[in-house]
Computed example of a mutant assay.
Amino acid sequence: MDSLRKVLNGQDEDEESHMLGGGNVTGGDSLCPSLSWQTRLTGFFACCGIGILLSIVGTILIFFGNTKGFAILYSIGTCTAIASTLFLRGPMAQLKSMFKETRIIATIVMIVMIILTLCAGLWWKIGILCLLFCILQFLAFAWYSISYIPFARDGVKKCCTSCLS
């Protein structure tokens, strides 16, 4: 569990001992430093679950021709799933992590696709375009998410190149 905390806090062992005096890891940038680790995990899973649920309900709406509801719920679901990490790392640490060199492109593409999904669903009212942007939003979110797993991007790249060969 300690190694999971270190990874989620973005700290190595020496950094953690120096910053926190070897005590409980609650994140140096925590929004609510008094929350226990169990409460943080509960908040993370609850928020992430709500985000996934909103995205699923939004996806169901597209089959009924409701592009507005789809665009809004799917995009809010994605944002809620991303916001769930604030329970684990804190807002500033998460923002810094999102805009690190390894994730900046995925982060920017994801944000642009969220905006384009909303534009296509709310103003342009073009369902197929809304769906296309949503798919690209999902792919950008997936690419962003796997960047937190060591060597996962390399594995996906190798798998894709072997499938294309």
Rank of each mutant, 00 (worst) to 15 (best):
D2F: 15
L4P: 00
V7Y: 04
G10T: 03
D12G: 13
D12M: 04
E13S: 10
D14Q: 14
E15Y: 12
M19G: 00
G27D: 11
L31D: 06
S34K: 12
S34N: 10
L35M: 14
G43V: 11
F45V: 15
C47E: 03
G49V: 04
L53P: 13
I56T: 06
G58N: 03
G58L: 10
T59I: 05
L61F: 05
L61G: 01
I62C: 13
I62T: 13
N66H: 14
N66R: 11
T67K: 02
K68A: 15
A71D: 03
T78K: 00
T78C: 09
C79R: 02
A83W: 05
R89P: 03
M92W: 12
M92H: 12
A93D: 12
S97H: 02
R103N: 04
I104E: 06
I105T: 15
A106S: 12
T107H: 05
I108D: 05
I108F: 14
V109M: 05
V112S: 15
I114R: 06
I114H: 06
I114S: 03
I114L: 04
L116G: 01
T117L: 10
T117Q: 06
G127V: 13
L132T: 14
C134T: 11
Q137S: 15
F138C: 00
F138N: 05
F138Y: 08
L139M: 13
A142Q: 08
A142E: 01
W143E: 07
Y144L: 02
S147N: 13
S147V: 01
S147T: 01
I149M: 05
F151C: 01
A152V: 05
R153P: 00
G155L: 14
K157E: 10
C160Y: 12
S162N: 08
